[in-house]
Design a protein around this nucleic acid. Structure first.
Lengths: 246, 246
DNA sequence: CGCCCGATTGACGTCGTTCAAAAAAGGTGG
DNA sequence: CCACCTTTTTTGAACGACGTCAATCGGGCG
């Protein structure tokens, strides 16, 4: 059984030893510079499932890198409805959207036991003045988020429910594989409702699509445990060329 | 008749004299620092309607600030379909999404005669090492874009056609007003098709919504010339509380 | 063990798309 | 300036995908 939680014998204590450094901010820093980054990182005790990393409206002080576990971000609208804006896996940076207004425009909540590295922004910024590659990496992370959001906008404005779920599962698969987990079998940390909220679909629709995928033999799903059985078919579906009814 | 084109008697030649500096990158720079920024800005001859600033896949070298006119950005998918990702008005920065992969993931095309300031990224980056406020402004611009994209994702996943168009018009209105143009009467630089593509709607739907708004007396629209007649009603519609059939 | 929340399934309604056609606007060359 | 052609916009009618409502099932947790 694969989970998002890496079972380390010892907690990571610095960037140099962290298996995620090649995916994370330290990317392309040499050891000396990594030490300087390490100097500003705060590593608190893990968040338990359901605990908040920050709330909407909180003052923006830090950005966070996921070390293990996963989180969701969502904002609450005037009418009280929630809009899920993202899921974050190990090595991914969150909190950057709070930079603009100095306040977090979203809540960040742990989907399971989750440990993080906190990077106080004032220090990160100072450091970035003298470390060009850190400066670039920070900009690249934001640029990638913009690119990802635009992919998401495409998905939401043009894709069918089938294609959205196929895209989502393949996207997760890719991110898991890049992080050393299995890309073909994994546990979804989020509920069907959360998935639907994120993808702009009703829970019932999510459930029906899963049923269709399983019946087509493209997927096996028992609750949150998912196994991808036919990548090409799912890719075809995500691209809008194929649909599970055929 | 209001247009996006500001009729200057002389072209702007530097940031200090530019009426947009308070909305643009120079925000919060003092005069001395503004001069340093000016030193790296390239101001080419204006783009005519339909001309491209850059194409999808082009190498990323610079970011651009709109001086006058407007542009759209869009990407072309594998199947040849276009996805409009944004409209850019004077003082807004575009091209930043190319930073991540060193290639522009979108095309940028002028919607009318448009003049721009080009900021070679290598120089901008160098300068940002010694100018903290420029560094922050760059990050803030990106952070704001992320926030905007997430608003857009909310719009696409949760709002009705009526609410999308109302939101869009009010958003344009706000941006125009902030730039010194009328917020209640303006000329849409984009076609109904482009608007629909951006908002995830068919042209026909856009047209029908406009008709409804006009019949409700919330709006007057003659072709691309638009006058907003009832802001509160449109706001109610954008929030999903009101609909023009009532 | 019982309760509650999450997931599934079916029936039905609705909003937006698609297809088709006409009207209006814009651009071009004579 | 006008005739002609192309593109954009508008309007109507029918269809379809997804949402809503309702009922049931199942698993986790107190």
């Amino acid at each position: 059984m694969t989970t998002l939680i890496k079972t380390n014998t010892l907690p990571q204590i610095n960037c140099k030893d962290c298996s995620l450094s090649s995916l994370c901010l330290p990317l392309s820093l040499d050891f000396a510079d990594m030490d300087r980054l390490d100097g500003i990182v705060k590593r608190g005790k893990p968040l338990k499932k359901g605990e908040f990393l920050f709330h909407q409206g909180d003052h923006f002080n830090s950005v966070f890198a996921v070390r293990s576990g996963s989180l969701k971000t969502f904002s609450i609208n005037d009418d009280g409805s929630e809009q899920l804006t993202g899921f974050y896996l190990p090595s991914e940076l969150l909190g950057l959207s709070g930079l603009y207004s100095e306040r977090h425009p979203v809540c960040a909540q742990a989907l399971e036991t989750t440990s993080l590295c906190e990077l106080p922004f004032a220090h990160l910024d100072e450091l970035s003045a003298t470390l060009p590659s850190l400066r670039h990496q920070l900009l690249r992370v934001m640029s990638r988020e913009i690119q990802g959001d635009q992919q998401m906008m495409w998905l939401l404005s043009k894709k069918t429910a089938d294609a959205r779920i196929a895209s989502f599962l393949l996207n997760l698969s890719t991110r898991f594989r890049a992080r050393g987990y299995s890309g073909s079998q994994f546990r979804l940390a989020m509920s069907r409702r959360e998935m639907g909220n994120y993808l702009g679909l009703a829970v019932e629709t999510v459930s029906r699509v899963f049923t269709r995928f399983v019946q087509s033999g493209w997927l096996s799903a028992e609750g949150k445990e998912v196994r991808i059985l036919d990548v090409p078919k799912l890719e075809g579906c995500a691209a809008g060329r194929l649909n599970p009814a055929d």
